[in-house]
Design a binder for these strands. Structure first.
Lengths: 337, 337
DNA sequence: TGGCGCACTGTGAACGTTCACAGAGATTTC
DNA sequence: GAAATCTCTGTGAACGTTCACAGTGCGCCA
């Protein structure tokens, strides 16, 4: 395997070792059908012998392809990195892309400087595609992306751009309906909700689903807003209790906020689920570590991630357009409702 | 800004636009001191005008540098990705490297196939350095890395290789001493511990610190082992209670395991901290969301990550050796002890 | 038998940089 | 005043691939 050799073996070395020409080696390596079985075998042997690995820089210089995809995190970092969903996405994406020998580069686009870096990177043609994570509707990055004509796919819809940026996502609205209906079926009568930010699909669509079941006017006073953080869940819950002390259920837009809500309910002397039923969303790890454990809506995150990557690869492979994917959610009942 | 132009501008275009030669443009762009101020200004203007971005592939073809660093996750993925510490590391590393215009590529080395891919990537010279995350002592990747002569740095020591792979880490042992001593000072007399895996520095060194304070022989019966998962914390706690029903404190090797331990203590009718004091380790987000909130040992994770990146960059820049960095921990007291 | 297509192979050019070198002026040194 | 030095510049070659093109046999068909 000649690892100790200082110079890395090139395609010329393989050509020499296998007794064929540079061109034939290249063809053999890239699966061109016009290669004799003898030549193919010789090349394979020579590759093993020399420990040859293709030089991506040289290749991409001529092919104009990089074998690289960028995952752009356009959230203020702190928040995103603590989102348990993010790890699932990252894990799945890494694996799926690796299977195709595509490298995943991480970039953060929190402030203007970051964003400028991302754009420069993309404009330089250093990546074949972009994986957008939790991009808000007004994100300036999106506008810049438009002028770049580089394949881009979002994980979770980008509000206001559903038609232009393909995405894979869970069916937030239907999930919220399931949970709300469940609370109704349990005999709850005064059901409130704590939403995520309304400029995110999760914030907006889960509220829509909630309203679908109960009627928009009926719940006007029973809505409070959070930002997905635990703390905002606490604040919103306190607000709801002040406003409507006799509420008997609350549908919270994320498990983390629900954990905050649980703490406030306990502090205010409400028993869960006897006095107030609590429903979450995500079915993240935290859902089964609260007390009582959360009844929540499970998102098929692994599938979402898988589909997102699939869409992107299709675009990179030349597909003109791809159709967004929306995946079904599932109600998971535990003790909190 | 000519974004609409199909062909990406090259250094030739910049040369033409600025009226100097290719070589001068290259020098201006790379900070060579032998460039007249006039030429420098002309080049800068031309770059802005044409929207030129250097082609990394072409550059690295001649420089043999890639401007890329690989973060290798050598843990079975599921576990690692849920480790809250991981997100901090990722966040900080991304940012620090971006500041130097170095791209961060994520790779997973969970099974043999993954590992082979990582090695091939590195052997192909596609990265300038490696950032190792939570590598166990027996990891086969480490052996392969040796033969590759590529700068590598670990985040957290790699047991048995402290001398060969530089690292930055928190002072696990001293942190464990602080916590154990604190429990003693609080008047606790039967103090048990739940460790992490003993082939990780956190598992081993925190146990060492615990023994430093109490004496190895004295605690023989008061040690149980976990694997950092919440579930393992539950199992270990149950085991300890069975073995030593009258224990009055437990130092748990991670917050997540401590959360599990809390659940078991409650189920077994022990009040925390009245009957049993519980101490954690990490000061992760979970520490302040348990009930009662955890007294724990804070690791300066951001600093650890920063230092890890710094060490790697120094090696890449040509430093022959660098000295490992060990950072102090801090006791954070809340309600659980 | 001559021409044609088919399977396969080798070769030159190109991709966009950087680097080493050589040379041109200006400035200093002896 | 010539030589040496210093600052700045342009040019050719190289990095390791792939791609287009031009070939070379070989079998097949008319």
């Amino acid at each position: 395997m000649a690892v100790t050799n200082k110079r890395r073996p090139t395609i010329h070395d393989v050509a020499r070792a296998s007794g064929v020409s540079r061109g034939t080696v290249s063809r053999a390596l890239n699966g061109d059908p016009y290669v004799s079985t003898a030549a193919l075998a010789a090349v394979k042997r020579a590759v093993a012998e020399t420990g040859y690995v293709v030089n991506r820089a040289a290749r991409s210089l001529v092919t104009q392809r990089t074998g690289t995809v960028v995952m752009v995190l356009s959230e203020p970092q702190e928040k995103l990195f603590e989102d348990p969903n993010f790890s699932v996405l990252l894990r799945v994406a890494t694996r799926r892309l690796a299977q195709r020998d595509v490298a995943l580069v991480m970039m953060v686009a929190g402030d203007d400087g970051d964003r400028e870096r991302v754009i420069r990177y993309l404009r330089g043609g250093h990546a074949d595609g972009v994986l957008l994570l939790s991009a808000h509707s007004g994100d300036p990055l999106l506008a810049e992306l438009d002028g770049l004509s580089i394949p881009a796919v979002a994980c979770g819809a980008v509000l206001g751009r559903e038609g232009v940026i393909p995405y894979a996502a869970a069916d937030d609205r239907e999930g919220a309906r399931q949970m709300t209906q469940y609370l109704v079926d349990q005999g709850r009568r005064k059901i409130a909700t704590i939403t995520g930010p309304l400029d995110t699909p999760g914030g907006l669509n889960r509220l829509e689903g909630f309203c679908d079941v109960l009627g928009r006017k009926a719940v006007k006073k029973l809505i409070a807003h959070g930002d997905y953080s635990r703390h905002s869940g606490e604040t919103a819950m306190a607000e709801l209790l002040d406003r409507t002390p006799d509420l008997d259920a609350v549908f919270v837009g994320s498990d983390l906020m629900a954990a905050g809500a649980l703490a406030v309910l306990r502090a205010r002397g409400r028993r869960v689920p006897e006095d107030v039923a609590v429903g979450g969303f995500d079915d993240s790890a935290i859902a089964s570590s609260t007390h009582p454990r959360l009844t929540t809506v499970r998102q098929p995150l692994e599938q979402v991630a898988t589909e997102t990557v699939r869409l992107l690869l299709e675009l990179i492979d030349g597909a003109e357009t791809v159709t967004p994917v929306v995946l079904p959610t599932e109600l998971v009942t535990r003790e909190s409702a």
